[in-house]
Computed example of a mutant assay.
Amino acid sequence: MVLLLESGFDSDIFTFSSLINGLCRAHMLDDAFDCFPEMFQWNVTPSDVTYNILIRSLCIIGDVARALKLARKMQSAGISADVFSFNALIQCFCRMKKIEDAKKLLVAMLTLGLDPDRYTYGAFVKVFFESERLDEAIGVFHSMEAKGCFPDPYTCNLVLDSLVKKGYLEDARDIIKRCSRRSTKAVKCRQIGRWFSNHGDTVEELLSGDVTEHQAVNPFIHTTLCAGKVVLIIWWDM
């Protein structure tokens, strides 16, 4: 870092944050943390962006204890944690199946007046389904939609796949109908069509009363064959 600055690079927050981010992306976390104290030597104060880069990188490798310690250091420096900080920590706890710890962070997040986004909700939806806590997962899914945080295709696939495998067909039907009202990107839900056809549903019957027959078939939703399996295609709004 010293060589870069002595070569004419500006000793500002952008330079340091960019370098730290590049080192983290290159999986050179130790070098990134070596740069952190050098910022103070050059009279540069780390920003929330700098802290979040390091917190996120620690969470990616599962070092949540160190990430929490850094988050506290950030707060001590007078920089409030933001949605990005909380999301990194919450996602890490959820990956570790430490749901109660993730919930505590969510409470702290709300206490600070921060609004959860689709990544916050998505982390809880995923861990609840993986832990077979389906009722809680469905509740979170509906809460995120009520807040205007529409799930991404991955979360949608996870929800539908989990629901039909557990026999929650009415909940799956409800989600498919909601999906059919928004159309931009395609989501391939493996074997969902086969599940519903086994229970006597056609695509048109599944969506009856919500969309017209033309909309039910094209372009919003249709079935197709992929590798010999019936696949349901839902057009999804991002």
Rank of each mutant, 00 (worst) to 15 (best):
L3H: 14
L4D: 13
L5K: 05
L5A: 03
E6P: 01
E6I: 08
S7M: 14
G8T: 07
G8K: 09
F9A: 13
D10T: 11
I13C: 12
I13G: 03
F14H: 12
F16I: 05
S17Y: 01
S18D: 04
R25Y: 06
A26E: 13
H27L: 09
M28H: 14
D31K: 15
C35L: 15
M39A: 03
Q41Y: 08
Q41W: 03
N43I: 05
V44L: 09
V44M: 08
T45A: 07
P46H: 04
P46L: 05
D48Q: 14
I55L: 03
R56M: 02
S57V: 01
I60E: 14
I61P: 01
D63K: 15
V64H: 09
R66I: 00
A67G: 06
L68F: 05
K69Q: 13
K69G: 08
R72N: 13
S76W: 03
A77N: 15
I79Q: 02
A81P: 06
D82E: 05
F84Y: 12
F84P: 00
F84S: 13
L89R: 04
Q91A: 09
C92H: 03
F93W: 11
F93V: 02
C94N: 09
R95V: 01
M96V: 10
K97F: 10
K98F: 02
I99G: 10
E100Y: 13
A102G: 03
K103I: 08
K104W: 04
L106M: 12
A108G: 10
T111F: 09
L112R: 15
L114F: 02
P116S: 06
P116N: 08
D117Y: 04
Y121H: 12
V127A: 06
F128G: 02
F129V: 03
E130F: 04
S131V: 01
R133H: 06
R133M: 14
D135G: 07
E136R: 15
A137S: 14
A137K: 08
F141I: 00
F141V: 01
F141M: 11
H142D: 12
S143K: 15
E145S: 13
K147V: 05
G148C: 10
C149D: 05
F150I: 15
P151S: 10
P151M: 05
D152Q: 12
P153W: 04
P153S: 13
N157V: 00
N157H: 08
N157Y: 00
V159S: 09
L163K: 09
L163R: 05
V164A: 11
V164E: 07
G167R: 11
G167P: 05
Y168A: 06
Y168C: 09
E170I: 11
D171P: 01
K177V: 10
R178I: 07
S180H: 04
S180C: 14
R181V: 06
S183N: 11
T184Q: 13
K185C: 10
A186E: 13
V187T: 06
N198D: 13
H199M: 04
T202C: 02
E205F: 02
E205K: 15
L207R: 01
G209L: 07
D210C: 13
E213I: 10
Q215L: 08
V217H: 03
P219M: 02
F220I: 07
T223V: 12
T224Y: 01
L225E: 10
C226H: 11
K229M: 04
K229T: 07
V231H: 09
I233R: 10
W236T: 08
W236L: 10
D237T: 09
D237I: 05
M238I: 13
